[in-house]
Each structure stands twice: as structure tokens, then as C-alpha cells.
Design a protein around this nucleic acid. Structure first.
Lengths: 415, 415
DNA sequence: CGCACTTTATAAAGCCCCTTTCCTAACCCC
DNA sequence: GGGGTTAGGAAAGGGGCTTTATAAAGTGCG
């Protein structure tokens, strides 16, 4: 937990690269203005990134009558990053260039019977092999693989401490993956992955305080506090899905009653729909995706049952988000994951109104609520971002320290 | 929001002083071990504090066969700090020495009719004058006055943006106080004051992540995240009292239904009691303090109504605290403020059980729940701590900066 | 009593990081 | 081709922390 001046450098390095990725041909001047750093610092950081071949000089730009500005841009061919999104029913893998553009995709279905770690790892290995093949990348250029797995994760040891959907306990996932994948691996969970994706490339860019609300089958929040990801003491902060919103309310799979997830998770939304229109044709009892899709179409077609179901869902969600606004006082709340994307603007609209009814006026006024602007899978993107962070962090490390220095001093010929 | 190496110094200065206050005759060696800093750094920081006369050298301690360790301790007579706790019905002021021992106290009652800022400020001024007089301190030795006022506060401008109990809106409280009080003033709210008190001197000492739950007439949480106070974007983070716990539940004074405060605030506890024993002799309908006191005595005497009321309150509180545990994943949750102190161990016991029922196992296992160990008014102590932080922060500031330097360059004779 | 050894505290040097300042490079325009 | 202007790099400077050397102050033993 000790802060050192090294951390400042790392943060600045992140900030500069983030800025370059966001606005790709850009000048050092622009970077200095955007980051608040001095020109000299920006220049050295840009130099570092050039040395790493993560960015390249791409030309010049006229300056008002003086020497033209040199432009730098992400070096798309400077490396590749892989993001792996392991979910209950699928493994989704994307390979990105350094501009975080998707170069290749692969998806594997995970059947309910395939809940053994080895089986899941097999799917991951296959999919990772597939994207590398598809992209025609030589292995050495893959800078790292970020892996998101649901539940609680210990990043230091690379174990999945607890994955509720498969009832995994302390599975040494990283060790298992290492046997199949030769690239540097980074493990975390989808909440933090999507939060990091928003922080680097999405709606939370440049914000010091943001809450990324994930609405999927499960529900949770990724917390960006004080400019960085908040992990909590055991890397499990953000477990918002099992917050009690209705004391003695609906039974949740976690064993408690009235959890947020039972009202605004995909299954919860299905329950909301059933309560409103038990016979509604929108309801596909065994298919969450189909039901949410149908609900979205229903809203678009002005189906009253669909509208009421979304309204009701937004009422719960609004109360929950208002709690987050009151507690964290964020600049922005981002609604992410597939349920949020599918229901889109109509849901957002209702949520904003519901939040306005519940939240305290001052924090509310300081907060905007938006849909995630990330067009692809935010979890894959976030996982890849973990790999990018890892690659960037390694820069700062001194490599050999005393052993190397001592050896080089004795073996190197005096120049 | 930019981090600079200066911030590291400030944090280390805090850390060293905190350690000295906590364990008063102590050696540089111990400080280095406790803070993780090098001996040299500790020595310079100790030197700074000696120069400021905040600490003094108090003797020597035998070392195992070498030069004896120099001991330093807080210089109690090196200055005084004042903490002001403005609440709905009273103004409480305490004057501390630098060891944060109370040297003098004053209390003023604020009648419901006296809701004008000028009236409240008058009480504060009187009480501050009184404690300075009582302690027989010369004014120059007062390093600062920390003021806690309920509601939302803008520290930069020193205004009370919104105080619900008196319906204040954007009252320039610091300006008003400056007319009566000549010492440096620091403004914030009770949630953050008690959190800082726990962080410096209480149960959160040395913890990077802690949640301080305030149980009084109002309810809220002070958040210590990543080693420091989390303020949010507009300094209103921690408003936990108006989190929805029971959708469509009890009507709250904030206009919503089912807020945490309506179940675990003093008024909420009175409602719990009334529901259980409408005719109970414990109930003093118009006196919160008396009722909570009676409830505590009832529990001690094994009164079944009292026990059930506490049990029921703990059920609500446990659900709420479990939410905080899931969301923040703190190392420790501290129950603070007068309701928590009055109900004490019996409440704590029930709350622990209730939290265990609601929280996720992993975060729960990482968290302890305790009562505040601070014997005096934590809000006064915390407010005084703000003043202490302010006095220490000012050390780092370069005084004249460029104007001074430019002037000295032109006016100073060449030496 | 004196010398060797131990431990503490301070001073010096080194490294890291950021900024400011100065100077050269590169371009425009007249 | 010389000002004027802007970009970018190199050097100096300031703040911070650590490691290393040195001075200071004891203990212990011959």
C-alpha cells in the first residue's frame, strides 16, 4: 500500500498511452495539455513508448507559423492483446491490436455439464489458439492475455477463489491456463474488467470517480474511486448484486432475500415480466437472452406489458443506482453488459427518472447516468486492458538489479 | 487530482505523527519499523516535527549494547486544537493538546427555534471562547479549529451547501465564523470527521479500507478507501442513511420510503420499539436520548421487549452493514456515534450475527465489525484532526513562491 | 584504562521523478 | 536569406526516498 514516486510515473505512462489511443494521431503538445504534465515529461514518456514500439511517429502537423508538430499514433502492428471473457454459458475471446481494435474473435459454448475447470480451460485454450491463428500474428507479438472469470479472484496467486455458477472453490486457474497458453496471463473478474474498459476507453475516461453497473445474468458494480480501480481488501469490492433492496423480498440464489439481482438481473427482469403479464408472449421461460430481446422489441413496438415491465425494472434499478450515487458520489454511472445494451435508451430514460426520485439532490446533480459507449464486449476489452496495463507496468521494473550489475561490472570489458 | 511527490511526503508526515501520538515515547527506530520508511527519512520527518515544536525529545532508551535510542514524544504544550461538533440540538466544543487529550469542554444547547446561521454561529463562538479561556491557552498556540456541521459541505468555499435539519442552503458558514474566530478554520461534516478520528486514533488505524458507520439521529457512513478519506466528486460520499433498504417501506423525512435511517436511526429504533411493544415503558415519545438509554437499560435487565427491539434493529442494521461489506470489501467496519455507544455490546453482537447471515462469505471473512474505541465525542476529535492535518499540510507549502523569489532577485543586493 | 565492538543518528551521495530554462531545429514570411 | 515563431531536446534544479559512510555514544573485556 506504500506509494512511491514510481507509481506516479506508472500512472502518467498509462495516462499518456490512454490519450494516444483515444485520439490517435496526436502531438506532444496536445498530450501535455490533456494530461497536465509538462512538455518535457510527455516527451520522455513518448520516447519510452516509441522505444517499446507501442507507438510510432506518423508525420507532422502544421503549427501556426513555426516548426511543425511531430505526430505520434498507436503502432497497430506493434503487438497484440487478447481478452478472454469466461461466462456461465460461453467463453468469448477477442484479439486486439494496440489501438484496441478487434482483429479476431472466437466463441466457445460451455454446456451446463462442462463445469470442471479443465473443461473450461480447454475451451479457453482452443479459442485463444483460434484468434492467434486467425489474426496471423506471430506468438512473440502477443503482449499478454487478460482473463475474466466470474466470482471472486485472487490476482496474486491467480486462483478463482469462488465462482458461484460452477461452485468452484480455490481453483488455480492461472496454473491450469499456463499449461496451454505461453503468453503472460492476467486474471480478474468481469466487474473490474468492464470498469477498466470504461476507465480507459469508455464513458469514464478522465473521470476520477465512476461506478460501472453491470447488468447481465449476474449484477455487480465496478468502482473507480480516486482515479483508479477500487479493489477492497480482498479484491472483492463491488459485489452489489447481493445488496438487500427489499428486506424479506424475493429469494436469491445466494440464499438471501430481496437482493438487487433478483429484481434487475436477467432472471429478475423475467420475474418482473411474469408478474405483470403472466401469459405474455414475450416470456421465453428458459431463455434469458430471448426474453430480454423480446422485451426490447416489445418496448420499441409500444407493447404495454413490455413498457410496464421495463418501467418496473427501472423502478428497482433506479432505487439501487440512487443508493450508489448517494454512497459513492461519482461523476458518472455507466450501465454496461448485455441487458443494459439490449434494453438501451428506453431503460436508461426510465432509470434516470427513477434515480431522480430516490437520490439526494446534491449528489444527483453531480452525477450523469449513461449507457456504455463501448460497442464490443466490454469484458473482453477490459480483460485485454489488464494485459496492456501489465505490459506497461513491466517497463518500470529494473531488470537485474544488483546481481546483474555486479556481474556486468566484472565481466564487461572496460570500454 | 494529480498526484505529486509532495503528496507522498505529506502522507508520510501524517503517518509518523500519527504513530508518535499513538505510542508516545517512541524511538526513530520504532517509527521506521512501523511506517516502513527508511531511518533517514524518519529522522528528517522527526526533525521537521521537532522544529515545529509538535514533538520534543524526552530522553533515551537503552539499546542492546550500543548508543542509546533517543526518545521523542508529543509536545503537549506545543499547541492546541479545537474540534466543534454542531448538531441538531447542541454545539459541542472540545479543546485538545497535541496528544489529542481533552483539555477543556463546552456545550451549548441549540433550541429548535434557533435555526438561523447567525444564532448557531453565536453558540459556536461562545463555546470556542469558553474552551480557550478554560484551558488558559494563549491564542497564538491554537493551531486551528475544525468544525463539523451536518449535511453537505463545500470545503473549498467553506459553505454549508445543505443542512437538512435547519433547511440551510448555501450558508457561507466559514465566513460567518471568521468574524468571531481568529484561528484557522476547517469545515467538514460529521461523517467524515468521525471517519478521520477512527483513521488517526481509533479502530481504523493503519487500515487501508474501513467503513465508519454513524448511528445517531441521522445515519451515514465515513469511507476510508485506499488509505485515505473518500470524498466523492462533490464531497458528499457516504450518504448511506437514505439508501433504500425496504422498497416502499417506512416514510423518511427525505421524502422517500424505506431508507436505512428510518430503521436504524434513533427515530427508526423508536418505531421498531413501538411496533414491538406499543405500550412499553421504555418509550419516551419525544425524547430520543431517553428512549435509547432506556432501551439499553432494558436489554441489560433482560426485558424481552427491549431485547426484541434490539434484535429487530440489528436485523435491519445487519442487512445494511452487509451491503457495505459487499460493496466496499473493507478490513473493518466501525460502529460509531451515540446510539452505537449507548446500545454497545448487545447491539454489536446481534449485528455481527445479522451481517453474517446477509454478507457474502469471502468479503465477510475479511472484515471485522467493532464498536468505536474512542471514549470521547468522535466528531469533536475528528474535527480537531482536520485542524491538525491542516497545520501539518501547511508545512510543505513553499511560502512565497515565484513572486517572492522574483522580488528578492531584483531587490536583493548581489552578495 | 584502553581498545574492539555495537548501535544510533546524521551527513553525503545516488537514484527517480517532475518542472523550468535554455538552446537548437525547422518552418513561415517578407 | 534573415527575423519571427513554434517544436523538441538537453541540462539544471528541486523534492523525495534509500543506501552508504561517518560521527557519536554506549558496553565489554583484557
Amino acid at each position: 500500500m506504500k506509494r512511491t514516486s514510481r507509481d506516479i510515473r506508472t500512472a502518467n505512462r498509462y495516462e499518456v498511452l490512454r490519450q494516444i489511443i483515444a485520439e490517435s494521431p496526436t502531438s506532444r503538445q496536445e498530450l501535455a495539455a490533456a494530461t497536465g504534465l509538462s512538455l518535457a515529461t510527455v516527451a520522455t514518456l513518448v520516447g519510452e513508448l516509441l522505444d517499446l514500439r507501442m507507438i510510432t511517429e506518423v508525420g507532422f502537423e502544421d503549427s501556426a507559423g513555426g516548426r511543425p508538430r511531430g505526430l505520434v499514433a498507436v503502432n497497430s502492428s506493434g503487438g497484440a492483446l487478447i481478452g478472454v471473457d469466461i461466462a456461465e454459458t460461453y467463453v468469448h475471446v477477442e484479439l486486439f491490436d494496440l489501438g484496441l481494435n478487434v482483429l479476431a474473435r472466437a466463441e466457445e459454448d460451455v454446456r451446463p455439464s462442462e463445469s470442471l475447470p479443465e473443461q473450461v480451460v480447454g475451451h479457453v485454450a482452443t479459442a485463444v489458439g483460434s484468434v492467434v491463428m486467425q489474426a496471423g500474428i506471430e506468438g512473440a507479438r502477443v503482449l499478454g492475455v487478460g482473463v475474466s472469470v466470474p466470482g471472486q479472484v485472487d490476482r496474486a496467486t491467480g486462483t478463482s477463489e469462488y465462482a458461484p455458477n460452477w461452485d468452484w472453490h480455490d481453483v488455480p486457474l492461472l496454473d491450469l491456463l499456463t499449461e496451454h497458453i505461453a503468453y503472460p496471463l492476467y486474471l480478474d473478474n468481469p466487474l473490474r474488467a468492464s470498469a477498466v474498459a470504461e476507465l480507459w476507453f469508455g464513458a469514464a475516461r478522465g473521470r476520477g470517480n465512476a461506478v460501472v453497473v453491470n447488468l447481465g445474468t449476474g449484477v455487480g458494480a465496478g468502482l473507480v474511486l480516486g482515479g483508479g480501480l477500487h479493489r477492497g481488501v480482498s479484491n472483492s469490492a463491488g459485489e452489489w448484486g447481493h445488496t438487500t433492496m427489499v428486506l424479506d423480498g424475493r429469494l436469491c440464489r445466494c440464499g438471501n432475500h430481496g437482493c438487487v439481482e433478483t429484481y434487475v438481473g436477467a432472471r429478475g427482469i423475467m420475474l418482473n415480466l411474469r408478474e405483470i403479464g403472466p401469459d405474455s408472449a414475450l416470456l421465453h421461460p428458459d431463455d434469458q437472452t430471448a426474453t430480454i430481446d423480446a422485451l426490447a422489441r416489445g418496448v420499441a413496438a409500444d407493447d404495454p406489458v413490455a413498457r410496464r415491465a421495463v418501467h418496473e425494472t427501472a423502478r428497482y434499478l433506479g432505487a439501487g443506482v440512487a443508493d450508489l450515487v448517494n454512497l459513492f458520489n461519482p461523476e458518472i454511472v455507466v450501465l454496461s453488459s448485455w441487458v443494459a445494451r439490449t434494453l438501451g435508451e428506453p431503460l436508461l430514460h426510465e432509470v434516470r427518472e427513477a434515480v431522480a426520485r430516490h437520490a439526494l439532490p446534491r449528489p444527483l446533480a453531480a452525477t450523469q447516468i449513461v449507457l456504455s459507449p463501448i460497442p464490443t464486449d466490454p469484458v473482453c476489452l477490459g480483460a485485454a486492458t489488464f494485459a496492456l496495463e501489465g505490459a506497461l507496468q513491466a517497463v518500470g521494473q529494473r531488470n537485474g538489479k544488483r546481481t546483474t550489475r555486479a556481474r556486468s561490472r566484472t565481466t564487461a570489458p572496460p570500454s
